[in-house]
Computed example of a mutant assay.
Amino acid sequence: MDTSNNIVLTKPFSVLAQESDAETVYKAPNLMKRILSLFKNVRPGSDLTHFQLPALFNLPKSTLQIYGEQVYSTSTDLLSMCNKGKSPVDRLTSVVAWYISTKRPTIFGVVPYNPILGETHHVSKGNLNVLLEQVSHHPPVTALHATDEKENIEIICCQYHIAKFYGATVEGHIHGKRRLKLHNHGETYEMNSPDFSIRFLPVPGNNWVGNVNIKCLETGLVAELSFTTQSFLGFRGNRRAVKGKIIDSSSRKILCEINGHWDSTVAVKNTINGEERVILDAREVISGLQTPIVKDSKSVWPTESAIVWGQVNQAIMNKEWEKAVKAKKFVEERQREILRERASKGETWVPKHFSLSHTKEGDWDCFPVQKLVPPSPIVS
């Protein structure tokens, strides 16, 4: 944990989920009992998007940091490997491996904070600079821009989630647009996200579920993936499985088959020559990850997640639950006060790092203000 001048950074989320003591680090006592009591008055089908959880149910981390870690927190540089494929199929296969690697194991019963409007998270790893900003609060929309000037790679994401309660489960439907650009090859890959499912009974657990399409706009190649979970009762089924295929959209010809588990290994099989190889070992991707460090605390923006939630992070890390509740309430009440002041003055808040567009149907998209993300004083 790095606590430079009240900038409280914690271990990457995926590492926490793999540690043997992760269950005891952040969870308050009798967590399952608390969860069931929390939802006892919530009707099935209710929208939980703006449901405020007590600090007892929080990780010491903002949702912005979770999204950012999926991009910069890796031990294996799968992103730059997307550039190295000799053929369009090779590059799409690498994009698939990178994409699946961003789906990380999670800890049951705890979730990150809902970011406040204008909150940012800015981290660098090597040549990769990553910037996130909370560009809307209702609905909660997060924008991400990442650039690697050396590899000439760019990522632009605009996503928001809608969480609904269904009695035994909470389903998080993740919407938005995601683009990975390999500028050296003139290729743009568009992709969606699976949903995130939290099951309380009969067997508690979390999982990614649903169908994903990754399409290269220029070549017409498409990867169709399916994330599956156990059966309804939670006792059988291929847990954390992912399978799919790479096809030529013009002919619908299947070029490759994909099969494995997103939290262990994933392999691809060439349908023409039968060759099979492992494209992802998830354990290698998240092994040896360390807490980001602050190189220059004076250069960290005051909107940085690790500052906004610093006191809450520290209290949760120390298991000082009452202090955590008070610190979180202070952040949230201050946010409401700022929103009321802005409304009374007739002011409209504008994101600093992105411009936005959205349709009447509720689709959002974002466009970075700067061509390149600058290096960050926080380094992973």
Rank of each mutant, 00 (worst) to 15 (best):
V42M: 02
I254Q: 13
D47Q: 07
G220K: 09
I293C: 11
R43F: 11
A28K: 08
S305Q: 01
G45N: 01
R179E: 10
K103N: 15
K181N: 13
F108W: 04
V42S: 02
E154A: 15
R239T: 05
D248T: 03
I116W: 02
L48V: 08
E257R: 03
I116T: 08
I279K: 06
R240W: 12
S380V: 11
L64V: 05
P351Y: 15
T106G: 13
K326Y: 12
E187W: 01
G109T: 07
V300H: 00
G310V: 04
K323G: 01
I100N: 10
V203Y: 07
A97H: 04
A97C: 10
F196N: 01
A17R: 00
S37F: 12
F232H: 10
K360D: 13
T74M: 00
V71N: 01
R104S: 04
T120L: 05
T10V: 03
Y113I: 07
N206L: 04
M317S: 11
E276W: 00
S264A: 07
L16D: 03
N270F: 08
E320P: 12
V278D: 04
H183W: 15
G126E: 15
E332H: 09
E23F: 13
G45W: 03
T142Q: 14
L182I: 14
R240G: 02
V135G: 10
R43G: 04
G45L: 03
T228R: 14
K345F: 07
N30E: 09
S94K: 00
G172F: 15
P202Y: 06
I247M: 00
L59I: 11
V110T: 08
V130W: 13
E333V: 10
K84L: 15
G109K: 05
R34D: 05
S287V: 00
R91L: 15
S136G: 09
E284P: 01
I293P: 05
I246L: 09
W262R: 01
Q65T: 05
C366F: 11
T219Q: 08
L36T: 02
T265H: 02
N270S: 09
T3Y: 07
L59K: 05
I254V: 10
E69L: 13
S87A: 03
I7M: 07
R178S: 04
K328C: 13
S355I: 15
I286S: 00
K326A: 12
V325I: 03
S297D: 13
I107V: 14
I162C: 13
V350K: 15
S124R: 01
H183C: 15
N238S: 04
G244K: 07
L59S: 00
T10C: 03
K33E: 13
A223W: 01
E322G: 06
F354I: 12
K269L: 01
G118A: 02
M317F: 06
Q134T: 15
K164I: 04
Y113T: 03
L38C: 00
E275Q: 14
V242R: 13
Y160G: 02
K40E: 11
K360T: 14
K326L: 09
V95S: 04
V294M: 11
I293Y: 15
L372G: 09
C157G: 04
G109E: 00
A282F: 01
L280V: 10
P368E: 05
F13R: 07
N211E: 10
V285N: 01
L79C: 14
I7V: 14
